[in-house]
Design a protein around this nucleic acid. Structure first.
Lengths: 353, 353
DNA sequence: GGACCGATTTAAAGCGCTTTAATAGCTTCG
DNA sequence: CGAAGCTATTAAAGCGCTTTAAATCGGTCC
């Protein structure tokens, strides 16, 4: 009497509706003997429906193996609760950020939609793809945006740039204070007793120049202005390999590399040249990448604190979307030095071996 | 006369409709002076509309900065043209696969929707997320699926497992023939003149045992059955580091490691122990990962051919979706040995140095 | 006994796009 | 000259869900 509907097969309890198409909201409604609107309310845990109705609806939904069609929900709902992320899936640091962002988004009731850069899909295409999905806000990891279109995009919806400085009055930014990070590395080495601390440069580029500047300032801060020594390089292993001989020719007892890859190249060449690390040379990298963490590398490095950057990026979007903030913000995070086994006090005899 | 609609502001040509909500199909239709259906046809390059109409519609769309709402399209269209991919965004091999899949999918007119595994989102949750997006087919990279629910999922829509064997009569599989890969490595070493070729094991697990088996078979195939030597280990750097001493104690002049990480640990320890590679010991890894390709590692390794795997995975889905295949298929790809600088003929004097 | 209320429930109007059946013009043909 | 046959275009019916206004139903109150 309560369920005169005989159309549903008497399948075993948890059996999904195998026959025909996937069940719709109206199927659940029919089965529970209520209207579609009510089912919608119940399944989204909205207030209103009576306790008895809730039970009936849940039961019916379970029996049918009902699963809401997100596409339809999105279309009908005002908000999509989607945040888009543009990333390079092949970049391990991006990957780490995304994993954390996902958690942060979920915590706030948002869902992440990923769009990755590929040889055939540039930043702009990837971004537009996300817009097609009705994302309410966008996070771009290390965006290049030479053309400045990000700014105009920022006027249409909340946009956050992660990891890269950006002059724009509409885009929020989250990044690590690279100069501070290098300063920490220098301070660590200075505290160990090093005075001749060299730097393997990262070439031109926003990030590299921030780090170089950080090195210079830190050295001056420690009264080591005259011992500043910047060895040319870039952000590849090759750079570190090339830098090794020049490094050994200098008086340096310690070195900070502009990134981990360069530091690893350096370590490798030093080993081949018979220089012991950290006994004869302390080495600090930058990025705290997987590379640095590899057991046999175990490189002291500066961490960019991906979890925190991810959290802040999502928080910035949430602020705009949920609390109506409109003026742009920039979040500068302090990097953190992770001390591993490539740094130690200099040899007692300060003359190079 | 052709355009009596004055509602559109006389904005500069490429100016997007900043005022108010984003333009809809009907806005374009009104502006072009045609019906919405026609606009839909034109923008999707469907046959029917006249040349003149096409021009008018494109013009109007451009002026308004129109961008189709994908959500609505999906709902209205029968097919979503979406393929879902479950991956671990932190795994570099997965990343590589995804990048290639994206290209392959695009080529066939499909779009990829990514769902990543995170600490708070397991394989099952990630998969269901994709279903919500109306994906027509699913690709799971290295799925664990202990519970066997993949099989039942495979009965509802096309599913492909990449990289992992799977006994199921509904799920397609793409993977590399690991035993063959190891065989190639052994053959390469044997051709160089090595006879005592050891193997650093990868522990238990489907993949590791395939490789171990491949090693044993290959050695027998080369008449080296008595020289088979499997050194215990797993798929981490640590394993390689631990294996080094035992390796040196054996008569081995060459070694194949079950994966690159283990090979890299091995290389590192060998270097510290003063063993020259490849002069005194040839080393082959497996996976041809970024690690192997790093300039200073330059490890001879077996490539799993990510591009090909990606291509095949997408092709399998396309076969089912576009050509109605229903019986399951398994694609076994031949791995490819990538020779780099860690392998060479053994020392002329065959007695261990 | 009729107006009035609060708690539930329902019918119906979209969300923005696709698709199908039907219409309107024009040519061509018997 | 009317029937046929085209082609270009349109009106309208969804896609599956959300949401709003209206309807229902017991009770209450005076």
């Amino acid at each position: 009497m309560t369920d005169p509907d005989a159309s549903a097969p008497l399948a075993s309890p948890p059996a999904p509706a195998v026959r025909g198409r996937r069940p719709r909201l109206s199927d659940v409604a029919a089965r529970a003997g209520v209207s579609a609107g009510l089912v919608s309310l119940v399944l989204r845990h909205q207030p209103g429906p009576s306790e008895q109705t809730r039970a009936r609806v849940f039961e019916a939904a379970r029996e049918l193996g009902y699963r809401a069609d997100r596409t339809a929900s999105l279309l009908a709902r005002r908000r999509s609760q989607h945040l888009g992320v543009v990333m390079d899936v092949r970049n391990t640091f991006h990957a780490e950020l995304v994993a954390e962002m996902d958690a942060a988004a979920t915590r706030r009731g948002y869902d992440l939609v990923l769009s990755t850069l590929t040889p055939t899909r540039d930043e702009r295409t990837a971004t537009e793809n996300l817009l097609d999905f009705r994302c309410e806000g966008l996070i771009l990891i290390g965006p290049e945006d030479r053309a400045g279109w990000l700014t105009s995009l920022g006027q249409e919806l909340p946009v956050v740039s992660v990891g890269r400085r950006l002059k724009s009055d509409s885009v929020d930014v989250v990044r690590a204070a690279d100069d501070l990070g290098v300063a920490q590395a220098v301070a660590h080495l200075a505290n160990l007793g090093h005075r001749d601390i060299a730097f393997v440069d990262g070439g031109r580029g926003t990030i590299a120049s921030d780090r170089r500047r950080g090195y210079r300032q830190a050295m001056r801060g420690h009264g080591l202005a005259e011992r500043i020594r910047v060895i040319p390089g870039d952000h590849t292993e090759e750079a570190g390999i090339r830098a090794a001989p020049e490094l050994l020719n200098s008086h340096a007892t310690a070195v900070v590399a502009s990134n981990d890859r360069s530091a690893v190249g350096l370590l490798d060449r030093l080993a081949r040249l018979g220089t012991e690390v950290p006994a004869s040379m302390s080495v600090v990298g930058y990025d705290d990448s997987m590379l640095a963490r590899l057991g046999h590398v175990d490189l002291t490095s500066v961490s960019q604190d991906a979890p925190r950057q991810a959290e802040e990026a999502v928080a910035l979007l949430a602020e705009r979307l949920d609390h109506g903030r409109t003026e742009p913000r920039e979040v500068l995070l302090p990097p953190r030095l992770v001390i591993r086994s490539t740094t130690a006090p200099p040899r007692p005899i300060s003359t190079t071996s």
